[in-house]
């Protein structure tokens, strides 16, 4: 009976206030070896694949990667020019945004979390400076945010989790909306868009930076389907996420500065 009472109290405290972060992160260190052990066979498989690749394969891959790098470099040149131009224009407008962001690569642990929630475990924790609420992206787009941190690992809440929402805007016309997770791997929903909103299938959705958590301008997804239900004021807009939520093995952790600076700027203005 006492334990039931304690459980209920602990659940309420954890859900409402989160005073138990310290306990959780301490206990996580205890569980971490198990997770590493589970991850080990997967890791070993990858290692074998790498070490027994033939020389020719490696050469071919090298060739391909070099080609890709050239391509990306040439794109990057253009991007840098654009960034500089953008900064200049913004300076003229009187609102500077620092685009520089600190980035760290983390690897996913092949570990299952709670079923019917969209959580993944990564191998970076407070030792590397990861903090709760930090934004996680991959090469294609936004993945989610940090949910729990512990010294050696942390849990990422994916954008497809039913309890997750990202403030977004449509890249084409700047229309703002909120992308809510559905619990399915391949769909988000845009909430509260009126039926006559200017949206088309294939529109790119990027993070709007309004919630001050996700930095501006990271791709979130593309509009996959728009259904108008007669009788309802809002259109049902589903978005397919651009990040490879099911496939990516390496993710990037961001330490954005722009949000803070923008924040302090607006504070000053006020």
């Amino acid at each position: 009976m006492i334990l039931i009472l304690v459980s209920v109290i602990v659940m309420t405290v954890d859900h409402k206030q989160g005073h138990l972060k310290f306990v959780r992160s301490t206990l996580s260190t205890l569980v971490y070896p198990i997770q590493v052990a589970v991850n080990l066979p997967v890791e070993a498989g990858r290692w074998m694949l790498r070490s027994f690749a033939t020389r020719r394969q490696i050469l071919a891959e090298n060739e391909r990667l070099r080609g890709e790098q050239n391509l990306i470099n040439s794109k990057l040149q253009r991007y840098e020019i654009l960034e500089a131009e953008n900064m200049r224009l913004r300076e003229l407008l009187g609102s500077t945004i620092d685009f520089k962001e600190k980035v760290l690569i983390a690897e996913l642990l092949a570990v299952e979390m709670e079923p019917d929630r969209h959580l993944v475990e990564i191998n970076k924790g407070t030792r590397e400076g990861v903090y709760e609420g930090q934004v996680v992206v991959d090469a294609k787009g936004v993945i989610g945010q940090i949910f729990h941190v512990s010294p050696f690992s942390s849990t990422v809440l994916l954008i497809t989790d039913p309890s997750h929402a990202v403030p977004v805007q449509i890249n084409r016309n700047g229309l703002r909306a909120i992308a809510v997770g559905t619990g399915q791997n391949n769909a988000l929903l845009l909430e509260h868009l009126p039926t006559n909103a200017d949206i088309e299938i294939g529109d790119l959705i990027v993070s709007s930076g309004l919630g001050k958590r996700f930095p501006r301008g990271y791709p979130v997804g593309q509009i996959a389907a728009i259904t108008h239900e007669p009788g309802s004021a809002f259109a049902k807009v589903s978005v397919s996420p651009s990040a490879e939520l099911q496939q990516s093995r390496e993710v990037l952790l961001l330490w954005p500065h722009s949000g803070d600076e923008l924040h302090s700027k607006t504070q000053e203005a006020m």
Binding site: D14, V23, R24, Q35, M113, L119, E121, H148
Partner: peptide
């Protein structure tokens, strides 16, 4: 803790 669920 392992599953990232609510405590308890």
């Amino acid at each position: 803790v392992q599953q990232g669920a609510v405590f308890g």
